[in-house]
Structures are given as structure tokens and as C-alpha cells.
Design a binder for these strands. Structure first.
Length: 507
RNA sequence: GGCGCGUUGGUCAAGGGGUUAAGACGCCUCCCUUUCACGGAGGAAUCACGGGUUCGAUUCCCGUACGUGCUACCA
């Protein structure tokens, strides 16, 4: 399917809800793949058994499907690079670690958590509050660099827990080119000997990402900019494995920031400010706590994708509303911003509003039905589609639809009679009673209805304008909704009469 | 603390040595509409600071400030 073998991947950890920043990373991967006729791979990074959350993997697939960002290759649609779950690739990493060990680019470390802790507290000073396991300290720790070969072998064979660390060289500058940021350099003296293989035999991200990107022939690797500081580790690994010519082109994406203040947007911010952060509802299996998602909040997937695309990227034209297909044609990494973007929920809702206006009413009816059911309204699908067509221009979220259209399905519970009560009189009561009788002989279409209404008003010497608002309140309950005679046409003569009758009895 | 990365209106942002510094969201005013909304027309509001380079810097360079990220056997 690919003409130039572009392969990109998204590699989430199945640990919980899918953050909108994660979805944007997926989106940029997906768009880049589409643009370059490449392949989008989903790989599950489940190397941390302690953080594994049941259901999270399933959830990620569901979110991507909802967004329309279904991977070309994944554990559900295997290509030639299976398995796609890192926990199932455990043996593979072990082999590559051996290579590093043999070449002296990695070493065994037997330090216990307590010893590491001691090292950190002992070396901690005001100038260096976070001592690292690096060239300066590794000579004082319990590892295969300080132990003899025999001791090391005995320890390993004897089952002593160990990790494998990369041996970061001294006095080198590691440089690479980031597609978005240009050349980036790091002094190796400032990077620590990261753990590559954990005590449980699982690789850390650092090892797994390099090995898998190589094995899965990834050509372009996109991730959040929080990964920038550890990039030199990855570059070193690519070099030590002798794969540098196959190394993917890197692009570190800007962060999505919280709307107020600064910092990365977190789920907490959404809760605090009243907007979703996850793509879809996420229920924590342990606590049972549900975190609301964009979908359940009333967003259309195409709107969600559209707003995410414009967060950190722009086409350089004035167009802002795009379909996923259009985005796939014009997306380019070169136009991705360097700086983080604050998330603006108001604008997000505007995008959704725009897409709701463009969406097909039948489809909207299907998607909006759950929101009606939640409000105990169970409309017929075809009928609902018509109603939505009449009110959709006044909602930003699908979840707002029921409140905007409830009166189409049932008489309003409460009427805002105060809106016209002070100007009410017997004559107007007489008008409505007369009009109800005339209704039977009037065609059920808004033009005929309005004409009869206007004519009667003239006959009785009342300004039509003084009767319009009362009629609206009687039918709708409040000062909102589509043109009032469209509503009469929609709900029919009987319902109209009943509502007028009821309102009159309240006056 | 160290290191990395960043900085155009309140927000998203275009632009890039000489411009009236686009556009969008939001906000305000008016028009349309005998409701609300949509739509239309306007308006307020921006190049973090200091040095250079230059005839000329928002744009290039260097600092400073500020912000943010990382500094785990988490990703």
C-alpha cells in the first residue's frame, strides 16, 4: 500500500484515558501517513506491568475508531512485524541487550532500590538536587564495571536481581536534526546511564522504542516534546546497534497547554474548568470513577479531529474547517509550530458547531439519540432528523439538542408567562380562543398558519406583534426556538390547541 | 540547581529586514429577525525586554527575563 515505504507509529501505554494530546499525536501520524501514502502502525507499550490497566487497550482502539484514525497495522490487523504488544516481544529485547553488553555499551547494575536511594540522598546538594547515575557515579556503584567478571557472572547466574544500563560516553556531543526544531545538541556528560532492561526482564521505553522502531522499519517518529531530553539516549542506541542509517527522522511535537496559567493540560484541568480532556468516557476499573470524554460531551468526531489538527499546526491559508480527508492531503510537518498551544474550549465548541451545521441530519439523529434518551425523550429517528434540522444552528454540542427541541416532543412543563403577562388582557384571550377554532379550517403549513393568525389579529384590532411572543411562550415555554409557525406546523393543530388551552388556563 | 525547548492581541495564529502586522475564537456596537440562534457590517486589542548588525528590525545575532519539559527499574 505504500509507494515510498513511509511508516509511522503511535505507541501508547494502556494505562487509562486517552488524552487529547495523545489523539493529536495520533492524528499527526495518521495525516503524515496519508499524505505520504505510508503506513500507520499502532504498537502497545505495555512494558510497565505495574501500570497496566485492564480495558485500556480496548479503549484506545475504540477511541481511534471513533476518530476515524484507525491504524493500518496493529495487533488487530497484523502486518509482517507482529507482535505489536511489547510485552510479547520480551525475548527480542533481551537479545539486543546482549549485543550491547558484549560491545561494552551497556553494563549490569546490581544496586538495590535502597542503594540507589542512598546514592541520591548522599550526593544531593543545593547545586545538584537530582544526582544522576552517570559516568561520575557509576564507578562507585555495584555494577559490572566495578565488579570483576567472575563476580558479575556469579551474581547474574546466582539469580541476583539486576538491571542493564547504557554506558553513556563522556565528553561527546550528540546531535540530531528534528524536523520541527532543526538541529538539537546534547552534551553526553549531562545525560545519565538510563536503565535499558528492568529487573523483571522487561525493557524500558528507551530500549524498546529503538529496537521496535528499527524492527518495524519506522521511518518517521513523532512524539511529544517531553521526550526531547532523552533523545540523546535513543540516538546513542541507534548508533551502538549500528543502525544509524535507518534511524527514523524525528519530530518532537509541541505540548498542549492548560487554558489558564501554564503547563501541560491535564485531566485535572478539564475537571476543574468543565470540559473534557479524554477522547471518550473513561471508567477507571479500580475506583469506578468515570471521566467524561469529548464524544459523550457531544462532540462530533470530525470536529474533534479538526480542532486538534489546528492546535499546533495550520495550513497557511484562511481555511479552518477541514474534513479528515482534506487534512490528509495538505498536512505538512514543516508547518507545525514549535511553541505549545493553550487549549481554548470556546473555540473547540465553535469547531463543533461548524461541523454540526455541515453534518447530515439523519446521521446527527443517530448520534444525538443517546442524548435524548438520557433526557427521557425517545423520538422516532426520521422525525428527530427533521427536528434537528430545525434547531441545529443554535447548538454547539449534541448534548444541547434536547434542551433546544424538547417542545417538539412534549408540551413544555413550565411557561415563562411573566414575559408577557403585564400586557395581557381579555381581548387577547378572546383572540386565541377564536384562532383555535379557525385552526381547523387552516392548512397545516407555516405560511397559511401565519396568514390566518395575522388576519384575525387585524380583524380584532390587535397588533400581531403583541401576539407572537405569547404564542411562542405557549408552545415552547420560553423565548427561544425556530420560527413559531414552523413549530406549529411541526407539532400539529391538536398539540397547538392543547398548549394554548393550557396556557390560557394559567393566565 | 542543571540541561533542553519555547515566546506575534485574552486564545489559536499568518507573516517575515521597509506591511495600515492577515484571518479565526471570544468580547463590544449596529443591521437582519415581531423569540433565541444563524447571517452581515463595524470596533477594542499584539510583535517579552536589553543590546548589537543594518539606512531600517517584529523579522537576523547575542544576552536577559519569563514560561515550560526532563532530571525513575513511568511512558
Amino acid at each position: 500500500m505504500s509507494s515510498n515505504n513511509v511508516r509511522v507509529r503511535f505507541a501508547p501505554s494502556p494505562t487509562g484515558g486517552l488524552h487529547l494530546g495523545g489523539v493529536r499525536t495520533v492524528l499527526f501520524n495518521y495525516l503524515f501517513a496519508r499524505k505520504n501514502n505510508g503506513t500507520f502502525v499502532l504498537r502497545i507499550e505495555d512494558t510497565d506491568q505495574g501500570r497496566y490497566v485492564p480495558g485500556a487497550e480496548e479503549y484506545i482502539f475504540d477511541c481511534l475508531d471513533w476518530c476515524g484514525l484507525t491504524p493500518d497495522e496493529s495487533l488487530r490487523k497484523e502486518g509482517e512485524y507482529a507482535p505489536y504488544r511489547q510485552s510479547e516481544r520480551k525475548a527480542i529485547y533481551k537479545d539486543y541487550v546482549e549485543r550491547l553488553l558484549e560491545q561494552g555499551h551497556a553494563y549490569y547494575a546490581f544496586d538495590t532500590p535502597e542503594e540507589l536511594e542512598k546514592m541520591r540522598t548522599d550526593l544531593k546538594t543545593p547545586e545538584n538536587p537530582n544526582p544522576q547515575y552517570d559516568a561520575k557515579v557509576r564507578g562507585h556503584m555495584r555494577n559490572s564495571l566495578t565488579l570483576s567478571e567472575e563476580e558479575t557472572r556469579a551474581l547474574v547466574l546466582g539469580g541476583t536481581p539486576y538491571v542493564v544500563r547504557i554506558k553513556v560516553p563522556e565528553n561527546e556531543t550528540v546531535t540530531f536534526t528534528d524536523i520541527i526544531r532543526g538541529e538539537i545538541s546534547n552534551d553526553t556528560n549531562l545525560v545519565d546511564d538510563k536503565v535499558l532492561l528492568k529487573g523483571d526482564g522487561m525493557p524500558t521505553y528507551h530500549l524498546a522504542v529503538v529496537v521496535d522502531d528499527y524492527l518495524m522499519k519506522i521511518t518517521h517518529a513523532f512524539r511529544g516534546e517531553e521526550w526531547l531530553p532523552s533523545a540523546p539516549i535513543h540516538i546513542l542506541l541507534w548508533r551502538y546497534f549500528g543502525w544509524e542509517k535507518d534511524m527514523p527522522k524525528w519530530a518532537h511535537l509541541p505540548l498542549i497547554l492548560k487554558p489558564d496559567g501554564n503547563g501541560k493540560l491535564s485531566k485535572r484541568d478539564g475537571d476543574r474548568l468543565g470540559f473534557p480532556v479524554f477522547a471518550m468516557d473513561w471508567k477507571d476499573p479500580k475506583s469506578g470513577e468515570v471521566t467524561v470524554g469529548f464524544r459523550e460531551h457531544g462532540f462530533l468526531p470530525e470536529a474533534f479531529v479538526n480542532l486538534l489538527a489546528l492546535l499546533g499546526w495550520n495550513p497557511g491559508t484562511e481555511q479552518e474547517i477541514f474534513s479528515l480527508e482534506e487534512l490528509g492531503e495538505i498536512f505538512s510537518l514543516e508547518r507545525v509550530h514549535k511553541g505549545g498551544a493553550k487549549f481554548d474550549y470556546e473555540k473547540a465548541k465553535w469547531f463543533n458547531h461548524q461541523h454540526i451545521q455541515r453534518a447530515d441530519n439523519d446521521r446527527l439523529a443517530t448520534l444525538a439519540l443517546p442524548f435524548y434518551q438520557k433526557e427521557n425523550i425517545n423520538p422516532d429517528k426520521a422525525h428527530l432528523a427533521k427536528v434537528i434540522g430545525m434547531v441545529k444552528e443554535r447548538v454547539h454540542l449534541l448534548s444541547e439538542l434536547p434542551a433546544q427541541s424538547r417542545f417538539f416532543f412534549e408540551a413544555p412543563q413550565t411557561l415563562d408567562l411573566d414575559a408577557f403577562k403585564s400586557k395581557w388582557n381579555e381581548q387577547k384571550t378572546a383572540f386565541f380562543q377564536t384562532w383555535m377554532t379557525q385552526l381547523d379550517n387552516t392548512d397545516l403549513n407555516h405560511e397559511a398558519l401565519e396568514l390566518s393568525f395575522g388576519n384575525l389579529a387585524t380583524e380584532m384590532g390587535i397588533k400581531k406583534g403583541e401576539l407572537m411572543l405569547p404564542l411562542r411562550i405557549m408552545l415552547v415555554g420560553g423565548k427561544f426556538g425556530p420560527h413559531v409557525f414552523d413549530i406549529v406546523e411541526m407539532i400539529g393543530k391538536e398539540a397547538t390547541k392543547e398548549r394554548i388551552q393550557f396556557a390560557l388556563s394559567q393566565l
